[in-house]
Computed example of a mutant assay.
Amino acid sequence: MNIEELLRAEICAVGASLFARGYTVGSAGNISARLEDGWLITPTDACLGRLKPEEIAKVSKDGTWVSGNKPSKTLELHRQVYDRNPSVNGVVHTHSTALVALTLNGVWSNDDILPPLTPYQVMKVGHIPLIAYQRPGSPDVAAQVAQWALRVRGVMLERLGPVVWESSVSKASFALEELEETAKLWMMSNPKPAPLQEHAIEELRSVFSAKW
């Protein structure tokens, strides 16, 4: 298998795993991967649990649809991340329940939707800012995400869900899952737990090069 075939297979495997465990439902969410001559992205209104490698859209570097089914309407958002951060090779977006519920109930802050609660949240996810609600596929949202592409691993779209990017599709999905599980912990806790203390976060920076 060549690199493109491997990436198509990885997108399908990650999509099926996320769908099977309830991180996305119906035809919600999308996944993309960088290629040397553009990128791959899941089709519009496709179920992540039933993706077929040959149906995944291929798009050129200038955003032109090359092959496969029609690309997701969030195409421009993915493109902005790839254009601005050369270290990114995979982007995952879901409508994860706990994270969407968090935006409905009120996030911790607009710059950090969750406080630093667990070491793996700090190490594997980091700061996740809130992007105020606009319709799915809005070019204004893509422009706002572009401003964060080099500074964080992802953003939270109000009422829609997380968009997370990493050096691979699989790593992006791992970070997204960690973020969703942290949201579950926060939502189910009453009273709310205190954030990790600064000395604990500094130790994670020192030992594991955590970016918080």
Rank of each mutant, 00 (worst) to 15 (best):
T182A: 11
L157R: 03
H95Y: 08
V92P: 05
N85F: 10
H95K: 03
V107W: 03
H127E: 11
A132C: 08
D112G: 03
E181F: 15
A98D: 07
T182Y: 10
P191S: 05
E177H: 03
S167C: 08
L117V: 01
S109D: 14
K171P: 03
R159M: 00
S87E: 07
I128P: 05
L117A: 09
G106F: 03
S168Y: 00
A143Q: 12
I128T: 10
L176M: 05
E166Q: 14
S87I: 07
P115L: 13
E158P: 07
K124R: 15
G126V: 11
F174G: 02
T94M: 00
V152S: 04
S173M: 13
W165E: 04
W148P: 05
V125L: 08
Q144C: 09
A149T: 13
L176D: 03
V141F: 07
S138F: 06
P86R: 10
A143R: 15
V155E: 03
A101W: 09
E177R: 04
S167Q: 08
Q121S: 06
V100T: 09
G126P: 04
A101V: 12
P86L: 11
S189M: 06
V122K: 09
V145M: 07
W186H: 05
P136H: 01
S109K: 08
N85H: 08
Y133L: 07
G137Y: 02
L160E: 11
P116Q: 01
M187A: 12
I113H: 02
V100I: 10
L117F: 11
T182H: 11
P162S: 07
L117E: 12
W148E: 01
V145N: 02
E181H: 15
V125C: 02
T97P: 08
D112F: 02
A183D: 02
M156L: 12
N105K: 09
Q147P: 10
Y120R: 15
A149I: 14
E178P: 11
R159T: 00
V169I: 02
D112C: 12
L179A: 03
L196A: 07
L150N: 14
Y120G: 02
H127Q: 15
S138V: 09
M123V: 15
E158V: 05
P115T: 09
G126I: 06
A142F: 06
V163W: 00
L99M: 13
Q144T: 11
L196E: 12
I113V: 13
A101L: 12
I128A: 01
D83I: 05
S189C: 06
E177N: 00
L150K: 13
V88M: 04
P139H: 02
